[in-house]
């Protein structure tokens, strides 16, 4: 409950850009009520391991993610602008070593925003990923090229 409460309060203060008492009190009460209503749900701080290694991995993860997002768009541009539309789509199955719920959620979302891949389903440790150009349709090959890059960081941050 505390992670969601802190995030909501920080968002509220950023939106208002003020620490006036009335703003602060309204934010505190609202954040508390919402955090209470959604006790069981996830927030980016849920299960975050606040170790020095995790705090170092977080910005690296963000940088890696932005790099992959740009690469993803350039590749998409390349496909969309080719007259022949070079596609080789399919849904492959990959496995993740992550065990935390937030770690898996972030992994699924990261995969969706990176080159040619879209998470279609998440069942336990298995992810089903739609791939614009299937390079490997076996589990190990697909896992190595889709999951491994992000897992490196998320494992340290969430486990």
């Amino acid at each position: 409950m505390l992670p969601l409460f802190s995030i909501l309060l920080i968002l509220w203060l950023m939106l208002n850009a003020s620490l006036a008492p009335d703003v602060l009190i309204l934010g505190l009460v609202t954040a508390l009520v919402i955090a209470g209503l959604f006790r069981g749900s996830l927030s980016p701080l849920t299960e975050f391991k606040a170790t020095p290694a995790a705090l170092r991995a977080a910005p690296l993860y963000l940088l890696y993610f932005l790099k992959e997002l740009v690469r993803s768009n350039l590749r998409l541009a390349n496909v969309v602008l080719s007259p022949s539309l070079p596609l080789n789509p399919g849904i492959v199955k990959v496995r993740t070593r992550l065990t935390s719920r937030m770690g898996r959620l972030l992994l699924a979302s990261s995969i969706t925003l990176t080159p040619g891949t879209l998470t279609v389903a998440l069942q336990g440790e298995w992810l089903y990923v739609h791939w614009v150009r299937v390079d490997h349709d076996d589990i190990d090959g697909a896992t190595a090229s889709i999951v491994a890059g992000f897992e490196r960081y998320l494992e340290v941050m969430y486990g």
């Binding site: 997002l69 993803s72 768009n73 998409l76 541009a77 496909v79 969309v80 602008l81 539309l85 596609l87 789509p89 849904i91 969706t112 925003l113 040619g116 891949t117 879209l118 279609v120 739609h130 614009v132």
Partner: peptide
């Protein structure tokens, strides 16, 4: 480019890919 992808891609999954990214 995303809009162009929505028009050119052959099925719903590829379209979603183009749209999201």
């Amino acid at each position: 480019l995303g809009g162009l992808g929505l028009v050119r891609m052959p099925d719903v999954f590829n379209r979603i890919q183009a749209g999201t990214k």
